[in-house]
Design a protein around this nucleic acid. Structure first.
Lengths: 117, 117
DNA sequence: CGTCTGCATTGACAATCATCAATTGAATCG
DNA sequence: CGATTCAATTGATGATTGTCAATGCAGACG
């Protein structure tokens, strides 16, 4: 991924107006873009998006055993999706006895939300 | 804007029985979740996220020929990313002469943004 | 101790994805 | 007309993803 995005005006084009005004370089640097793309990517699956929705709606910590029956996927697959969300820094989990309780990290989605608006 | 999945209240450990009763619920909002996941998925790539950023910041219509030199990818690959964004309903394009001008559809990102907050 | 339970990990698979080189198509210029 | 230019499409390839069955593992219970 390039970091310097200096625009070079086209040299040869058919006589006439240029195709468009020069574009400024994106002021979202590649690093930040990658971070936000990672968050978006983690949300880019219906199961994970609904997982975040459920966890957020319940504002507390939800046991995995309560999440499994909500979806038509196997338990390992759900665990895989939860790991994706954890790796993206969107959720975190806490173990208590046999159970694992998941919760949305506050302000985890704020970055992306701010950029969107 | 939530996705409407209901949890079964956590029971005490029911030695020898499943921990949760299966929730059979018409998943009315699976469609909405899929739609938003599609948007998020389209943004889940650094190139596409920066493309949206550039197009949005420019607030007008930007020629593809001005976008290509901004990234370290080939022209067909950029065209592929633009198609992904178009398919997700995030951007649209207009052909004028030899050039194709892309622009962000105003309310495309609003859905996801609203859900995020 | 042994067994059960809840969750994570592994391994395997097909499907999708990002990427490029080559080509195609369309529009413009000489 | 032919040559040129911009953008989309095609075909191929290696990487990543979503999924499940099987297994592993740690805590709880008897």
């Amino acid at each position: 991924m390039t970091v310097d995005l200096e625009l070079v005006p086209k040299q040869k084009r058919p006589a006439g107006e240029p195709c468009c005004e020069p574009v400024v370089q994106p002021d979202v640097n590649a690093e930040l873009a990658t971070r936000m793309a990672d968050i978006a990517k983690a949300l880019g699956d219906p199961v994970r998006l609904q997982l975040v929705d459920v966890l957020r709606k319940h504002a507390g910590k939800v046991c995995v055993c309560e999440l499994v029956p909500l979806f038509d996927i196997s338990q390992p697959t759900l665990s895989h999706h939860l790991k994706k969300l954890r790796d993206a820094g969107i959720v975190d989990s806490e173990r208590r006895g046999l159970w694992a309780y998941y919760y949305v990290i506050p302000d985890a989605l704020k970055e992306l939300s701010v950029w969107l608006t």
